[in-house]
Amino acid sequence: MLPQIGIKPENLSSVAQLLNTVLADEFVLYVKTRRAHWNVESPDFFDKHKFFEAQYEQLDDILDVVAERIRTLGHYAPSTLKEFLALTHLSERLQETNDGVGFIKELLADHESLISRLREIINRLADELKDLGTSDFITGLMETHEKMAWMLRAHLR
């Protein structure tokens, strides 16, 4: 049963589809950040190891709230690797070395790509799909990713 919250059922479905792609992007970014945490090799290994841990923990929280937003709107969240890979806009490409700077550049590019994508859908959610709540929710996610990207970028100075 779809919630009766003032959003047309077809719009709820469209919003859920957009959120499904966001969830897939978040999941792929989470896995890539875990990979960095597990495999980083550099003179400042411990600092980078802990830094990547803090970032994947943030992403883990994001995964949960995005999936719960999908459920709040009466739809099911994707939950298999196959679904995530079919829905994501990010690449699974892997760098050739396990150095901290390489991981940071790769993760920064993914965060910035995700930020741009989130920015694109904010107004669509509000204007076209009439879902101000999800538009606001995505704005908050975008701001979180902007801060995470800043933290990554700061390592490259």
Score class of each variant (00 low, 15 high):
residue 14 S to H: 10
residue 125 L to I: 01
residue 82 K to L: 06
residue 66 V to Y: 06
residue 50 K to V: 15
residue 112 E to R: 15
residue 133 G to Y: 03
residue 104 I to R: 01
residue 74 G to L: 13
residue 130 K to G: 00
residue 62 I to A: 11
residue 92 E to D: 11
residue 52 F to I: 03
residue 50 K to N: 10
residue 69 R to V: 01
residue 96 E to I: 00
residue 46 F to N: 06
residue 10 E to Y: 08
residue 143 E to M: 09
residue 76 Y to K: 13
residue 141 L to Q: 10
residue 37 H to T: 03
residue 1 M to N: 08
residue 75 H to F: 15
residue 32 K to I: 04
residue 77 A to T: 11
residue 119 R to V: 01
residue 103 F to P: 01
residue 25 D to G: 03
residue 43 P to E: 08
residue 105 K to C: 07
residue 99 D to P: 05
residue 58 Q to P: 01
residue 146 E to V: 11
residue 103 F to S: 01
residue 34 R to K: 15
residue 51 F to N: 04
residue 83 E to K: 11
residue 44 D to G: 04
residue 41 E to L: 14
residue 108 L to N: 05
residue 3 P to E: 02
residue 112 E to P: 03
residue 3 P to T: 03
residue 139 T to P: 00
residue 146 E to F: 06
residue 11 N to G: 02
residue 154 A to W: 04
residue 44 D to I: 02
residue 66 V to I: 15
residue 55 Q to C: 06
residue 104 I to M: 03
residue 152 L to H: 08
residue 148 M to F: 02
residue 27 F to M: 09
residue 126 A to V: 03
residue 26 E to M: 05
residue 106 E to M: 10
residue 60 D to R: 14
residue 96 E to P: 05
residue 133 G to N: 12
residue 142 M to T: 13
residue 61 D to E: 15
residue 38 W to T: 03
residue 132 L to V: 11
residue 48 K to D: 12
residue 92 E to K: 10
residue 18 L to H: 13
residue 80 T to E: 08
residue 35 R to Q: 15
residue 39 N to L: 12
residue 65 V to Y: 07
residue 126 A to N: 11
residue 105 K to A: 02
residue 117 R to I: 06
residue 13 S to L: 11
residue 65 V to I: 14
residue 61 D to R: 13
residue 72 T to D: 10
residue 8 K to I: 01
residue 55 Q to R: 13
residue 152 L to K: 07
residue 91 S to V: 00
residue 16 A to K: 08
residue 143 E to N: 14
residue 33 T to Q: 11
residue 90 L to T: 05
residue 41 E to F: 13
